[in-house]
């Protein structure tokens, strides 16, 4: 079990809080909350809690690549149960899409 914290610059703000995924084997859940008043509107703070130790560099690279394109400010919480980088990326994009498009919460 490892808790990793990252921060990335962001230019957009999430429209709404979104929850995606399940802490199931090979999967993860993501909670994205827009910045609250007092929190910087230009930072994405990411906390990863993962059941698998020793993948700090890979987490950093996957997240860096994602936040280079989807620059979405807010508090990102990732609860991971051994998801592969491909699944992580998919869940991140799902979260970003739900947080920026119009319509009901997923």
């Amino acid at each position: 079990m490892q808790t990793l914290n990252y921060e990335f610059p962001a230019t957009q703000v999430a429209r709404r809080a979104v929850h995606i995924g399940v802490v199931a084997s090979g999967d993860l859940e993501i909670l994205l909350a827009p910045p609250e008043s007092g929190e910087p509107p230009d930072r994405a703070t990411v906390r990863v809690r993962t059941s698998v130790n020793g993948f700090d560099t890979i987490w950093h690279d996957v997240l860096e690549r994602f936040f280079a394109r989807a620059t979405l400010a807010g508090r990102w919480e990732l609860n991971d149960f051994g998801a592969t980088p491909g699944v992580v990326n998919l869940r991140l994009r799902q979260a970003a899409e739900s947080a920026t498009t119009n319509g009901a919460d997923s």
Partner: peptide, 8 residues
């Protein structure tokens, strides 16, 4: 504390 990832 048991190294199991919780769900929110």
């Amino acid at each position: 504390p048991q190294d199991v990832t919780p769900q929110a």
